[in-house]
Write a protein that binds this DNA or RNA. Sequence first.
DNA 1: AAAAAAC
Length: 576
Amino acid sequence: MEAFQLLSRGGARFDKGRFKNDVQLFNKAKPSNDKGKAVAKAPEGELPAELDFFKYAQGGTSKRKTSGNEHKDSNDDERSNAKKPRLDNEENGEEGAEEGDDPPMPRHRVTTKGSNVPEHVDSFQALHERYNLSKRLLTNLAESGYKRPTGIQSHGIPILMESRDLAAISPTGTGKTLSYLLPVMAALGAPSASSKGETGSGVRALILAPTRELSHQIHNECLKLAQGRKWRVVLFSKATANTLADKNVRDKVDIVISTPLRLVAALQAGHIELENVRHLVLDEADRMLDAEFLSQVQEIIAACTHPNLQKAVFSATLPAGAEKIAMGMLRDPIRVVVGLKDTPLPLIAQSLTYVADDPSKLPTLLQYLSQPYNPPVLIFVSTQPRATSLAEELVINSIPNVDCLHAGMTLKEREDAVSRMRRGESWVMVSTEVMARGMDFKGVREVINYDFPQSVQSYVHRVGRTGRAGREGKAITYFTNEDAPFLKAIANVLLQSGSPVPEWILKLPKPSKMKRREMGKVKRAETVTPASRVGRQDAIKKRDMIAGSKRRKEKAERKVQPTQDRDSSVADEREN
DNA sequence: AAAAAAC
């Protein structure tokens, strides 16, 4: 309680140490409300790896049988370490470890399928021994804090380094980006300009991602790894596209990271050639292959005419339709699946909260935020106007450090919002689907699906913004009567990843086609319904602080706590 | 099945 007041009084800015301390206090104050975790802490035992994911499930779920070579890559000790809650930590200032040292990654079963699958590696060092990966890259890896390869890294990197095509499916936050960047860099060797004749000129590696923010993040990762090399790594934007209009400039480019439409525009303007591209990666592959992106991606692939083009697709989810398209694009592909496809990590404690209808959501959220929680919290809504209006309502209700991010904002506003998030200045970030995939904010402790996700894939990616790199996470999903037709599908996902689900939800009948169609017609309110009109006239002035998603210049002066009953002992607003 | 995202 004290901890909360300390935190709510805090200004918009705070130093990292202070923040960490507050979080610590939060954790102590927080009653153990992680039911899922309590179950998950059961002794790990000697179960075969493939049962590992199901052992927490209460009801019987059907186990998926996978075929192909199976590499058991499971380490139960590490798993239980990763699961240990941090609730009991003392405030002894030893928390520095939390920033620097990643907890050990849980090991998952890895299934590979394809011809002549290269042997996986157990260390990055082994890549030097087997493929002569440069010492420089090994050093950069170490300096970026990579110690041991994750499942997808130890299996995927050798496949790509042996110039094979790859379809990689690995859960959120398990290091897919490095899995494709490292082989690309290893293959590039010398910078483009200095090796004319041998490797030709112009861009040799191309990475496509569905959002600007994600491209940006990949670019940053790429720059870290490329340190000390003279490669030119270009994040495609309007500005860079223009500089590339100069043929001499673009001949010296080695790696391009872009969103599809941006690149298509440059192609059509004749501002870039892709005939020397030897490595093409589709990140968030299922998203890149869905209807709106597919034709753009196909146009780009068609422009990559080099005979030795290597293609790779990566995602945490790959529905059958997308997989078929992907496999059709790849040449003698190897398919690697880490853990279970379309399933969140067990270390994300997930729950479902019944909220009756749309107007009931805001009071529920305000009640939740009036109790100790672990910032930053990432909140997902279905549309841009709802994102803006929810952020406004939270500000009006004196929730501190609220931010908003959606694709309707200007580029600068979007960049600012992301950097506030990275600096830990956002405590509550309201956003649309644009943030759902790939974004790696290591500090995100909690995800709230304010609006029900529109697909299993969306759900998996959204909750996957937490629980990254072996950390624990928590995800809450609100559902209303209108969401009922899709409730069961999501409930099964929770169950599959070890989170408890109330019996009655599992007993729901499978929704009929007609019912689903009806649901498609149900339209959510355009904006979020305000919680209460009391004091609203006064409070409405505070809108400016978030309107247009501009940076709030001053923190809320208000010392009075919001009207919610802070002493409410109802810690658990879950149904049942 | 539909919104959001891509310029």
